[in-house]
Simulated scan of single mutants.
Amino acid sequence: MENVTIIGAGNGGVTAAYHLAKNGIEVCLYDNPKFSTQVDAISDSGKIVALSEHHGEKMMLSGSAEIKIATTDIKQALSFSKNVVMVCPSFAQEIFFKDMLPYLTSEHRIVIMPGNYGGLVLNKMKEDAMMPELNLTFIDCISIPWACRIVEPGVICIMGLKSFLPLSIFPKENTTSDLLDTLKKLIPIPIEVLDDPIEAGLENINFGGHPLLTTLNMGILENFEGNYNYYRDCCSVATANAAAKMDEERLAVGKSWGYSLRTELEAMNALYDSSYETVYDFNRASTTHVKINSAPASSKHRYITEDVPYLLVPCYELAKSKGIRVPIVESCIHIASAYNGENYFKTGRTLEKMGISQQ
């Protein structure tokens, strides 16, 4: 039987543990002792429950699944399986990886959801730690497979599931048929293998929809405390036009680095098996996204604190290295930095942090 260790017990991590266990894979779920609420609840009950209905909306993949181990012991977690799926905010990747390093072997494969250039950053951390003998394999996914939420400790709801999941394998020479077979078991939807973590980072569909729409709507988001549907209510004709211009900047950066990227609309239609004619139509009517009746309530939400420093800043840096202007991306970073009193140009994921030389 295949087994897996899930690192991170947030919305995506608990859902990953549930779905993979439901598919017959033995699961160890880990989180840091400081954030043990989910792990403690699941350890006590021995299972995760997925609701069939939530707030009057029908959910997917309902039922319960037994979890083999739920722990806050990182050594125990990494000894459980060579297959590791890290599902956490990008800012936590380095924190988790620092704790993981002493217990990792060259047999470990680390799937990162979402990657956001994480494979490059974690590989550089390994090199900086003077561990050349440690030949790790990093798999950067552009997102997570599920639209999901934790309802209460050990209880989730799954609103939707992507049709497939693009990902990269780094170093590329570690790609084997055995690895691909394992990934097809660990990722419960079809996969698409991209060239490298840079392409995977640029293909993340959160790029425009999250940080730009959140930035443009911050006044109403804060004043109404996020009590409405983000995708339907924050996307207007005008904001969709701005997002389209921002997407053109991303596509230009990708082209300068040799990638033929999907447009935001192409990606969303492909991932959710839909055929909307505009991004505006998708956000207003997507059957998956209209179920999520919530929105960011402040500038400290991950749509800003994760997507700006870990998606927009790398794009800006990749553009700058090729002499390309990305004024909307740059403006969004400046505004988000002003919102939170932080210079995301410095604290975000720079080429130096990714181990990429200026070209």
Rank of each mutant, 00 (worst) to 15 (best):
E133V: 10
V39N: 11
N135P: 11
N116R: 07
M125Q: 12
G13M: 00
E26C: 07
A16V: 01
C28D: 07
A41Q: 12
L29N: 10
P132Q: 01
T37E: 02
K22A: 12
M125V: 10
S45E: 12
L61A: 09
D40S: 15
D31H: 11
A17K: 12
H55W: 03
S45I: 01
Y117L: 14
T71P: 04
K47Y: 00
Q93V: 04
M125Y: 07
K22R: 14
I74V: 15
D128W: 08
M86L: 01
V121E: 08
S62W: 06
I110E: 00
A17Q: 11
A65N: 02
E53V: 10
T105W: 09
I42R: 02
G118K: 08
C88S: 14
P89G: 06
M59L: 02
K22S: 14
K75T: 04
A70Y: 06
F80I: 00
S106Q: 09
I48R: 10
T105I: 08
D99E: 14
C88E: 03
H54A: 07
L104E: 09
A92H: 11
I42D: 00
L122S: 10
D44G: 11
A70P: 14
E66T: 05
N135F: 05
K98N: 09
K47I: 00
R109H: 07
C141G: 15
G46Y: 02
S43K: 15
I110M: 04
S45D: 12
D40H: 14
A70R: 02
F96K: 06
V39G: 13
P102D: 00
N23R: 14
Q38M: 05
K47D: 03
Q38S: 07
P114W: 01
L104M: 11
P132T: 00
M60Q: 09
I48Q: 10
T72I: 02
V111H: 09
T71S: 09
S81L: 06
A70N: 09
G46M: 01
M59H: 01
N83R: 11
V14Y: 03
K34H: 06
R109L: 02
A16I: 00
T137H: 14
V121S: 09
V84A: 10
G46E: 02
K22D: 08
E66S: 04
D128H: 07
A77N: 08
A77L: 05
A65K: 00
Y18P: 14
F97A: 10
C88K: 07
I139H: 12
N32D: 15
L61V: 05
I110K: 04
T72Y: 01
L134M: 12
N23K: 15
E127F: 02
K58V: 05
Y30P: 14
Q38C: 03
V85D: 02
L120C: 14
G46Q: 01
I95Q: 13
G63W: 02
H54T: 07
D140W: 09
V84N: 11
S79M: 05
A16S: 13
H55C: 03
K47C: 01
G63E: 01
L78M: 03
